[in-house]
Simulated scan of single mutants.
Amino acid sequence: MAPRLQRQIKVFMLMMVSLCAGAQTSADSTLAVFEQWMARHGRIYMNNLEKAKRYEIFLKSFRFIENFNKEGNRSYRVGLNQFSDLTTEEFKARYTGFQAMSKSSKSSTATTFKYQNATEVQYVSPPESANWVDKGVVGDVKDQGDGCGSCWAFSAVGAVESLLAIKKSVFADLSEQQLVDCDKANKGCKGGRMERAFDYISRHGIAYEKDYPYKNGQGNCNETAASASVTKIDDYYSIPVNERWIERSVSQQPVSVAVDGDSDDFKYYKGGIFSGPCGKKLSHAVLIVGYGRSDSDGKNYWLIKNSWGQQWGEKGYMRLQRSTGTYGGICGIELSASHPYLN
């Protein structure tokens, strides 16, 4: 018998003994937490062996969170959420989806990235803080769901929604599904990039969410719904790897970025200013909707909007440390920044 299966059966037997004996042990207490977590997140497993497997993963998550929060001297905290019974590999496959550029893909893509620089736009010093959520031009936090790596579409659509609200006072809920199904420069649920999405929207436009609703999966392009696209953008820009240039752009509109979002720390983020640890292997797309400085500890931060629902982080948002002096920023947030453009 495989060692992993033996371990799962052992965990299952311990679960059953704990329940039957009614002992007030630490394991029994953790099992009760697991049962409450299952009820809260609507988890129903196909059999007890699968439940034992998920309980084993949950225990590791629970212990990590408990130990992390006990350490103190942290600028952020972590907590249980909808990802607590998933392995790192499962989480990455189901809930991320940013497609990092390789040397070969740079030459093969049909999209030519357009870089914003001082010859195109006169540089002005950005304000000390910006918050587009407070200004009412950021749409509701959405949930990309389980099993579709469509974060790139949510980041791009969120940027376009905010740009329309800022430039034209049009508050529109636009379709991520159209990008997932119809944007052939990207790979739908298997991942994509926001620049390519912006290029698609500039050429084809994008429909309302109500006319082309999200399905948490990829299908054939609905040509009828796509042809009823309600808005286009004029162009897009990719921002150089420079914190001040990104600040300047965010002071004018929300900006799409990618981050290394695979770590347990990032996955279980609950609140505060996230300071890592994380690498710079970009895997997940989000939207910077502001920046500022914490009153409590003086740390500078980016305010990012995620696509994992409102139960993650600070009601779907994260404050990620800014001005660290490291190339690319925390989690590589400065390495792949872009935004749509509209006259």
Rank of each mutant, 00 (worst) to 15 (best):
G219M: 03
S296K: 05
K210G: 00
L287K: 12
F171Y: 15
D235S: 15
I201D: 03
H204T: 12
D211M: 02
A228F: 02
S238L: 04
K187L: 13
Q252K: 15
K210Q: 12
V250T: 05
V286E: 08
S294H: 01
D260S: 13
A226H: 00
I246W: 02
D260H: 13
S296F: 00
A172T: 03
D262F: 04
I273F: 04
V250Y: 02
D173I: 01
C182K: 12
E176R: 15
G192N: 10
E209D: 15
V180M: 10
G279F: 06
K270I: 02
G217V: 00
A197L: 11
A165N: 04
L287N: 12
T231E: 08
C221M: 04
V241R: 01
F198C: 06
N216Y: 06
G217H: 01
D297C: 08
G219L: 00
H284V: 05
G205D: 07
E176F: 04
S249I: 14
Y236H: 13
F274P: 06
A285H: 06
A172R: 08
H284N: 11
A285Y: 06
K280N: 15
Q218Y: 08
L164H: 10
L179E: 07
K270M: 09
A225G: 00
K168S: 13
C221R: 04
R293H: 03
A258N: 10
C189V: 04
A172S: 14
V250C: 07
G191W: 03
V259E: 03
K215P: 00
R244Q: 14
V289P: 04
S202C: 01
I288M: 14
Q218V: 09
N242P: 00
S238W: 00
F274M: 11
K232F: 11
V257M: 06
A226G: 01
P240K: 13
N242M: 03
K267E: 04
R244T: 15
G261H: 05
G271R: 05
V255G: 12
F171R: 12
Y212L: 07
I288D: 07
D181H: 13
G272E: 08
G276P: 10
S202L: 01
K184R: 13
A258S: 15
S229D: 02
Y200R: 00
R248N: 10
C221V: 09
N186S: 13
P240A: 10
A258F: 09
I233Q: 08
R293S: 05
I246A: 08
S256I: 05
V180A: 07
S251T: 07
F171V: 11
P254N: 11
G279D: 07
N186Y: 10
V250L: 04
H284D: 12
I201W: 02
Q253K: 07
L287G: 12
P254V: 14
Y236G: 02
R193Q: 12
Q252C: 06
E176W: 05
N222I: 09
Q252Y: 04
L174T: 02
G290I: 02
S202G: 04
L164M: 14
F274K: 08
N220K: 11
V259L: 05
S202Q: 08
F198W: 05
D260C: 07
H204F: 14
A285Q: 05
K184V: 12
G188P: 08
G292D: 08
D211W: 03
K167S: 14
S283A: 09
G217K: 09
R293D: 00
C189P: 01
